[in-house]
């Protein structure tokens, strides 16, 4: 029974969505937005679930004197501090005329967001540039035929994306060899490869969905497929 009920709910919900895709008439046409509202409500509650889990794990790390306890302390201070600043700004903003939201520019919460959160996120994102360089270095080593083809394709695509390479060969020919070849690689082999993967993904999604709707695949609710 513990597994039958979730499977039944999944099957009904899956069938309703599948049918509503073909029936634009109300109420089927509206089912996606109705379910979307439900998901939003569930997510709003789940945020608290996540926050409480984070606090619980962090407090446990501190109490068990784990090696990571310093990071856990920073998490707790940051979480509670940001929450407190948000509540303070929201409360004091209500007393002002016109009322000020805690998210409005100039609030303490906005300061935390703009000068702490955003630069930290940007720092993590900017690390991508260095990782692309290190990954490219490994990928572009001509160890075998495939890697050599990748190296050649990469050279032409990168060369074709900047005007300098075409300009360098302009004394020899007016034909923009690099940009033409880069466009050709992107338009034909690259698009063909991507579409092949896309078709495979679409079939995989259909197959997985069918397995879940028909109750063949059950391991996501525990206990293997059977």
């Amino acid at each position: 029974m513990r597994r039958q009920i979730p499977i039944l709910i999944t099957t009904i919900a899956g069938l309703v969505f599948a049918i509503s895709y073909f029936i634009p008439h109300d109420p089927f046409g509206e089912s996606e937005s109705i379910f979307g509202d439900w998901i939003t409500i569930v997510q709003a509650f789940a945020v608290w679930l996540g926050a409480l889990n984070l606090l619980k794990i962090s407090f446990e790390k501190i109490s068990s004197k784990s090696a990571d306890r310093h990071y856990a302390a920073i998490i707790i201070v940051s979480l509670i501090g940001t929450l407190a600043v948000g509540f303070y700004d929201g409360y004091s903003g209500m007393a002002q005329d016109p009322q000020v939201s805690f998210r409005d520019p100039g609030t303490n919460f906005d300061w935390l967001y703009r000068f702490i959160y955003t630069p930290l996120s940007a720092t993590m994102f900017s690390m991508l540039a260095f990782f692309v360089a290190s990954a490219s270095y490994r990928a572009f080593r001509a160890r075998n035929v495939q890697a050599t083809l990748l190296l050649i394709a990469g050279f032409f695509v990168m060369g074709g994306r900047v005007p300098l390479f075409d300009m360098m060969i302009s004394p020899i020919t007016d034909f923009p060899v690099f940009s033409w070849f880069a466009d050709w690689i992107m338009t034909y082999p690259n698009t063909a490869g991507q579409r092949a993967i896309m078709i495979g993904i679409a079939l995989g999604i259909m197959s997985s969905s069918l397995r879940i709707i028909l109750g063949i695949e059950r391991s996501h609710i525990g206990g293997g497929s059977g």
Binding site: M198, G200, L203, S207, S208, E217, G224, S225
Partner: peptide, 26 residues
Amino acid sequence: LIGEELFAASAYLGREPELLGSLKAQ
């Protein structure tokens, strides 16, 4: 695992006939 292989992985790991049957259909 490239694209569809992600969706085939659970069937492949399980080796149950029903799951493998769906892979064959794919």
